[in-house]
Structure formats: structure tokens, C-alpha cells
């Protein structure tokens, strides 16, 4: 009984997160300006990280956790670099 509840809730959560990723991708595609696209990318990597965590809960392995950590690190650095680029047009000053 509890196993069915857990499996179903994980599936629903994964579908929610997939829909959230789709919204973020739509915002990236629609724009209308570059800062909206970067914002969409920011939301996208957070959703991808959370999706990996739900996969980790589903399979019971901690490998996904490491991947989520790497995604959040790389996503943060790239968002900051893109924001700096939008501000001045050059990443390295």
C-alpha cells in the first residue's frame, strides 16, 4: 500500500517537474529579450536538478545526487557569466 503511494507520488512529481521544464524551455524560446531567456535557463537547470533528485529517490541510489550537485554548480556559474555578459557585453573584464 505504502509502496504504491510512493511510486505514484514520485511519478506525479516527475510529471510536474517535466511540465515545469517545458514551461522554462518555452520561456527560453519565446524570449522576448535576452534576459528572459537567461531567466528561463536558470529555472530550467533548477528543475533538471530536482528531477534528478526524484530519480534518486525512485531508484534508491546516491549517484543521481552527485549529478544534481554538479548541475547546480555549473548552472549557477553559467547564469552568472551570462548575466555579466548581458550587463557589459564582455565576460572577462
Amino acid at each position: 500500500m505504502s509502496a504504491t503511494i510512493l511510486i505514484w507520488s514520485i511519478t506525479v512529481a516527475q510529471l510536474f517537474l517535466l511540465a515545469a521544464m517545458a514551461c522554462a524551455v518555452a520561456r527560453m524560446v519565446l524570449g522576448p529579450r535576452a534576459q528572459d531567456r537567461v531567466l528561463g535557463f536558470d529555472a530550467l537547470y533548477v528543475c533538471a536538478m530536482l528531477l534528478l533528485l526524484t530519480f534518486g529517490i525512485r531508484t534508491g541510489t546516491t549517484i543521481y545526487f552527485e549529478a544534481a550537485l554538479v548541475i547546480s554548480l555549473l548552472g549557477f556559474v553559467s547564469t552568472v557569466a551570462l548575466a555579466k555578459f548581458l550587463m557589459r557585453g564582455e565576460v572577462i573584464e
Partner: peptide, 13 residues
């Protein structure tokens, strides 16, 4: 799980 993913989805919407 449902709370977290639901809030994330609302944010994305």
C-alpha cells in the same frame, strides 16, 4: 515530493 514539485510547477507557470 508533491508539495515541492507542485510549487516548482507553479513557479514555472
Amino acid at each position: 515530493l508533491l508539495l515541492g514539485s507542485g510549487l516548482t510547477l507553479l513557479g514555472a507557470i
